[in-house]
Structure formats: structure tokens, C-alpha cells
Design a protein around this nucleic acid. Structure first.
Length: 200
DNA sequence: AGCACGATTAACT
DNA sequence: GTTAATCGTGCTC
């Protein structure tokens, strides 16, 4: 299966978030393949976006956001969680898509162990849960998803129909002023259509 | 130098 | 529904 090329990420962020739904995130970990289908994604777009880490300008923490597309922006929050984003748009424009949920498809036994044997239904249904299940941390910040030897990348799957996508406000950004608090930049795959996703 | 808080999760009432 | 956990970051003094 083909890996998504840099041109996939070098587009308007909302377009990338929409196209990422249903695609397969793969993490190669000591010769094992951990993978899941992306079922929730969220867009963070530019310095104007008061919920985006780029709002205060370039800092040591967010510099990857300002870099070239197709790289992972992984940051630490709440003193204990790692969150995974994919950098989008042109080099120099700070924007990214936060990966908020997956449906596990490969390496589930390992994910289960990494998640301390919690129930399968809650292995990867949150942004910090999926990084824990796939063993993704700050080591991946700045890593190139499009490099030939990448151990974290996205594989191309059939695009989902528009009827399978639900748009809503972003989660956990109530501190941001309007309109940033309410813009419908959270994209989810409808629960009813999950059964129709081809997992092969 | 000090401090308030976060793109969250899990546990508890 | 409410709250503790836990610490790097960015902002104020």
C-alpha cells in the first residue's frame, strides 16, 4: 500500500484533515507493525487561529509547526500526555492536523499492553490514548512522515464518502476567543459508517 | 524567578 | 458531573 506523499500534506489544512479520515496511520516498532484507521482529526490553522500553538509566534516548542509539511509535530501537555499532529500547508506557514482517534487494525495485542490492558474499546479513542497505544512520544517531534525509512507514516486507503463525515467544534479549546472556539474544524467519521470501513 | 494553565485521561461522587 | 495527576511552556513581575 502506498504511503501518502508530501504533496498530500502541502494543501489547505481543512482539505488535509478531510482526506486523512479513513487513512491508515502506521507505526513500525521493533519490527512490529502497529496501525489504525484515522477516524477523528482536527485542524489548527495559522497564527490568526487563537487555539493554534502558532498564535504567539515562533518558539522553541512550536518550531516544527512553521516547518515543511509532511512532518510530525508531537508535543507534551498536561504534564503527562503526548499529542500527534501532521504539519500541513507550505513551509513557513504554521498549521497542522491533530490526530484525535483511531480504529486499531494491526498490532492490537501490543497496543493493549501499552495501554495497561484497558478495554479494547478505549485503546485509541483519544489523542493521548492513541500516542500511548502506538508508543509515540517527543522522539517523533519533527520526524518526516514521507521519508523512505520513516517508522511513522500514513498509508493511502479509499477516500470516505462525504456522507460519512461529521463536522463539529474543536475539543478542549474553550479558552480561545470566538470565532476560534466554535469553528467546525473537528472532523469525525460517523459511528454508523465505521462498520463499512474496509480494514484490509 | 515565580506562576497559572493546558489541543487529556482516569477515577470518583 | 467533578476533580486529581503532573510538568513544560510562556507570560508577568
Amino acid at each position: 500500500m502506498a504511503r501518502l506523499p508530501r504533496s498530500f500534506f502541502a494543501r489547505p489544512t481543512l482539505e488535509v484533515a478531510r482526506a486523512l479520515l479513513g487513512q491508515r496511520l502506521v507505526r513500525l516498532r521493533s519490527r512490529e507493525r502497529l496501525a489504525g484507521l484515522i477516524v477523528e482529526a482536527e485542524a489548527y490553522i495559522g497564527q490568526e487561529d487563537m487555539a493554534c500553538h502558532a498564535h504567539a509566534g515562533l518558539t522553541a516548542r512550536n518550531k516544527v509547526l512553521f516547518g515543511p509539511p509532511g512532518h510530525a509535530y508531537v508535543y507534551f501537555t498536561y504534564g503527562m500526555h503526548w499529542l500527534l499532529n501532521f504539519v500541513t500547508e507550505a513551509d513557513g506557514f504554521p498549521a497542522a492536523v491533530l490526530v484525535r482517534a483511531l480504529v486499531p487494525v494491526s498490532g492490537v495485542a501490543t497496543m493493549r499492553r501499552l495501554r495497561h490492558d484497558r478495554p479494547d474499546q478505549i485503546l485509541t479513542d483519544g489523542p493521548a490514548k492513541l500516542t500511548q497505544a502506538l508508543d509515540i512520544d517527543g522522539e517523533f517531534n519533527g520526524s518526516d512522515l514521507c521519508a523512505a525509512r520513516a517508522s511513522l507514516f500514513v498509508e493511502s486507503m479509499e477516500p470516505l464518502p462525504e456522507s460519512a463525515v461529521a463536522y463539529g467544534p474543536r475539543v478542549g479549546v474553550n479558552y480561545a476567543p470566538e470565532p476560534w472556539k466554535s469553528v467546525p474544524w473537528n472532523l469525525k467519521v460517523n459511528v454508523e459508517s465505521i462498520g463499512e470501513i474496509d480494514v484490509t
